[in-house]
Structure formats: structure tokens, C-alpha cells
Computed example of a mutant assay.
Amino acid sequence: MSARPDAASPAASLHVDWTACDGRGLCAELLPEVLAADPWGYPVAAGPHPESGGEPGVGGAPGVGPAPWPRREGVAVPAAALPDARRAVRMCPRLALRLEGAGGDRRA
């Protein structure tokens, strides 16, 4: 018997094409449960940074601000956030977002 996926378990992975992203911050506005914007508008994973001791978006030193997105493999998107993630991918003005694992790799 398989376990039922809950709304918080990762259903997909969101990736940023850093050569295309110009830090407009729209993705963070559309997907606040998954992304936050750094001081320049570039996306960072929302929630505690793995090396911050639990501080949201902070990469080590207090007061420095959000750390750059450290993961090349993308950020986990829970099932409940998939509609918003798909919308963020579709609406990205630079087409810099890609969603993987939600029924196939897609830009929309």
C-alpha cells in the first residue's frame, strides 16, 4: 500500500535559468510559499536556509539578507503550490523558470 501524498510533500521542482533571469521578482510575488526575492529582486528559496540555523532566507550572517539560491537542482514545490508555480512559469517575462516533475518537464 502506498502512502498518500500530503499537500506539503514535494510534487515538482522549480529551476531558474540564471542566464535569462534579470531579477524582476514577479515569480516571488506569484509564488510566495516557495520563493522570496533577494534585495535585487532575484528569486531565493523561501523558508529556512539549510545553513542558517532556521532563519528564513538568510545564508549565515544575520542582517546580510537572503542568500543566493544555493541549489542547482531547484527548489521543491509542494502539490498545493503547483497551480501557482505553473502560473509563475507562464508569466515569467524572461522565460527563466522551468518546472520539472509535475507531469513532465515544462515551461508552462
Rank of each mutant, 00 (worst) to 15 (best):
A37F: 09
A37S: 15
D38L: 05
D38Y: 02
D38H: 03
G41Y: 01
G41C: 03
G41K: 04
Y42W: 12
P43W: 03
P43N: 07
V44R: 09
V44L: 02
V44T: 15
A46I: 06
G47I: 12
P48Q: 11
P50M: 03
E51K: 07
E51C: 07
S52F: 03
G53L: 07
G54R: 05
G54N: 01
E55Q: 12
E55H: 13
P56L: 11
G57D: 08
V58H: 02
V58R: 08
G59C: 00
G59D: 03
A61T: 14
A61I: 12
P62A: 13
G63F: 08
G65V: 08
G65C: 07
P66E: 11
P66I: 04
A67R: 08
A67Y: 04
P68Y: 01
P70W: 14
P70G: 14
P70F: 11
R72V: 14
V75E: 03
V75C: 12
A76K: 08
V77M: 05
V77S: 01
P78T: 12
A79G: 14
A79L: 13
A79N: 03
A80V: 15
A80R: 15
A80C: 12
L82S: 01
D84W: 12
D84V: 07
A85K: 05
A85F: 08
A85N: 06
R86G: 15
R86I: 08
R87V: 12
R87W: 07
A88H: 09
A88N: 09
A88Q: 11
R90W: 08
M91N: 13
M91V: 13
M91R: 15
M91Y: 10
M91P: 01
L95H: 15
